[in-house]
């Protein structure tokens, strides 16, 4: 059999599979309605999140008022009030199947998404800017700056080496590395976006920045993105890279203001 014959048959196989998928959707809404529902679902999630947030704020205000009134009534009895009596907001989560175990505190609206030994993702609340991604990767290395999806052997895997590389990456407009210390891990972080003068035609399909030991890379796919990489050194010699990928750089500081407390709640000492 020739290549053309085989490829035509294989293409027909895909087209038939798509047709069957479409036909099997008769019990569900047709595709246009389905997309509307897809959009509606996102809108509904936002409304639910806003409603939930509103209820939570109301409850918090009531609780605060009760505590304040209570402390005023008790002020003659005791001048100290144990702050630990107020439970922390959100929920404590674990890292699931991720290679490096840790816990974290999720604010209201956040949720655990998925994990495997090499990566883990958390879902920001729907109300947060659409397109924001939050990932945790294990043992990532820097890639070459030439779009080739190859590891950059001249850059070490430590937090210091990685953050220094990204702060000087020729395609990036980046901040200087800043330190971060968490229970059981320490390292640095750096913010960056594509440099205005960088010729994007050299990497028309996105700029790989980091890759795992299996050759899977992560990087810029949208030139409006702005990212923060936290690279953490762990006592066992492994590293953890936390990626906050914000679709539009203009919203970056707002998003980071909400995301940074989640990162700062990571506890690798457990």
């Amino acid at each position: 059999m020739t290549f053309d014959t085989r490829s035509r048959q294989a293409a027909q196989g895909i087209r038939r599979a798509v047709e069957v998928m479409e036909m099997s959707s008769t019990k569900t809404p047709p595709r246009l309605t389905r997309f509307d529902r897809y959009q509606d679902g996102k809108s509904r999630n936002k409304r639910v999140a806003a409603l939930t947030l509103g209820i939570a704020v109301s409850v918090l205000l009531v609780v605060t008022a009760v505590v304040v009134l209570g402390s005023k009534q008790d002020s003659n009895v005791s001048i100290t009030s144990p702050t630990t009596s107020v439970p922390p907001p959100g929920t404590i989560g674990d890292s699931g199947r991720f290679r490096e175990p840790f816990t974290y505190t999720l604010p209201l609206g956040w949720s655990f998404d998925s994990a495997d030994p090499g990566w883990m993702s958390l879902n920001p609340p729907p109300a947060m800017e659409r397109g924001t991604s939050f990932y945790v990767f294990s043992n990532m290395r820097a890639t070459l700056p030439d779009c080739s999806d190859q590891p950059n052997q001249s850059v070490g895997s430590s937090s210091e080496a990685m953050t220094r590389w990204f702060s000087r990456h020729p395609a990036l407009d980046a901040t200087s590395p800043r330190p971060i210390t968490l229970p059981g891990a320490s390292g640095g972080w750096v913010d960056f976006k594509l440099a205005a003068g960088w010729d994007q035609s050299t990497c028309p399909h996105g700029l790989p920045l980091i890759m795992n030991p299996h050759g899977e890379s992560w990087g810029f796919e949208h030139n409006t993105d702005m990212m923060r990489f936290y690279v953490l050194d762990l006592p066992d010699g492994n590293t953890v890279t936390i990626v906050v990928d914000v679709r539009h750089a203009s919203n970056f500081q707002d998003v980071i203001g909400q995301v940074a407390p989640v990162v700062e709640s990571f506890d690798f000492s457990t």
């Binding site: 048959q9 196989g13 069957v20 998928m21 959707s25 569900t28």
Partner: peptide, 15 residues
């Protein structure tokens, strides 16, 4: 969500 049906063995091998 919907799921694609499986391809034939030949088509799956090609892709």
């Amino acid at each position: 969500t919907m799921t694609m049906p499986e391809l034939s063995a030949d088509d799956a091998e090609f892709w």
